[in-house]
């Protein structure tokens, strides 16, 4: 009864309702034109991704053949990447950064959102504004002094240096607060009358009911941390640290070795694509929520 009250449930309900009535009214010719437009745009969206994997699977000597199907297939480019780049270490480092950043942001922002949603307190509005306003502050404005702080702390060239400055996410606070506010107050009151403390209530009542939101939010945070490029580039500097920098280094050194470059790029995208295929609904849900506010 409680889990159904989240925003996602109602939106999905409305989607199907609007879709069926809409579908019945639309003349067939218009539908065909719509399919044509969408098929074209889908093709444009998909093709570069296809081309990345297709090029990576070509035999090295065939890379400049622009045939649409790579044939015969070959894993030579992948072998080259693993031989010349420490790909497993790069992927492992990126994974550590993405997982720890996402988990840390989730924890910090869960607590902050809980404070904003469950209490009235002095300075609440101004503090909330301070959290949200960080969304507007471009990282280029803060990067120089953060770089200096990390350098003083000896955290340059460490994974911790990438993770620690990013532990608070305005988006996560916003999303979590919104869902906690939609949460039925009677449940909180009931738990309170039972004599449970706020910490226990958070973990036994609030978190179990926010599970769908927490799932899609953690996916979103993981993907953005995985794909983040500039802050790791600044902190880690070396090419053999995270997969994004590995590719950039490769791009300058092996500029014409397109097969290997596409193989490395493909490997960098693979974990996120796998996540997308396995949990498409949650991923899409997360991005929609991030855009709606």
């Amino acid at each position: 009864m409680t889990g159904r009250t989240t925003g996602g449930g109602t939106t999905r309900g409305r989607t199907t309702a609007g879709g069926t009535t809409g579908g019945a009214r639309v003349p067939r010719r218009r539908t065909a034109a719509g399919h044509l437009l969408l098929a074209l745009l889908s093709l444009i969206s998909l093709f570069p991704v296809y081309w990345m994997f297709a090029s990576s699977l070509r035999q090295p000597g065939h890379i400049f053949r622009q045939s649409l199907l790579p044939w015969p297939l070959s894993l030579e480019s992948y072998r080259f990447v693993f031989d010349n780049l420490d790909m497993s270490a790069l992927l492992a480092n990126t994974l550590v950064i993405a997982v720890v950043t996402a988990a840390g942001q989730l924890m910090v922002c869960l607590l902050a959102a809980y404070a904003f949603a469950a209490w009235e307190f002095r300075g609440r509005n101004i503090l909330f504004l301070m959290f949200v306003a960080t969304w507007l502050i471009p990282f280029q404005v803060t990067m120089i002094s953060n770089y200096l702080v990390l350098s003083n702390l000896g955290l340059l060239n460490t994974l911790a240096g990438v993770i620690i400055p990013n532990l608070c996410s305005a988006l996560a606070v916003l999303m979590l607060r919104q869902h906690m506010q939609a949460f039925p107050r009677e449940l909180l009151d009931a738990a309170r009358i039972d004599g449970r403390g706020s910490w226990t209530i958070l973990w036994t009542v609030v978190v179990p009911n926010l599970r769908p939101v927490l799932a899609s939010l953690s996916i979103l945070l993981f993907i953005s941390a995985w794909n983040d490029y500039f802050w790791p580039a600044l902190v880690l500097q070396r090419a053999n640290s995270v997969v994004q920098l590995g590719i950039r280094g490769f791009l300058t050194e092996e500029g014409d070795n397109w097969g290997a470059l596409m193989a490395a790029s493909g490997l960098a995208c693979l974990p996120v694509f796998a996540l997308y295929m396995a949990m498409q609904r949650q991923v899409v849900d997360a991005f929609v929520r991030s855009g709606l506010r």
Partner: peptide, 26 residues
């Protein structure tokens, strides 16, 4: 078909920026 189109259109959002740059440079 709505789900399929949205899924395909959404794919590039997930491509890492450096990978996107690499494939377009190619």
């Amino acid at each position: 078909s709505r789900t399929v189109y949205r899924a395909l259109l959404f794919l590039p959002v997930l491509v890492a920026p450096v990978a996107a740059a690499a494939v377009w440079r190619w």
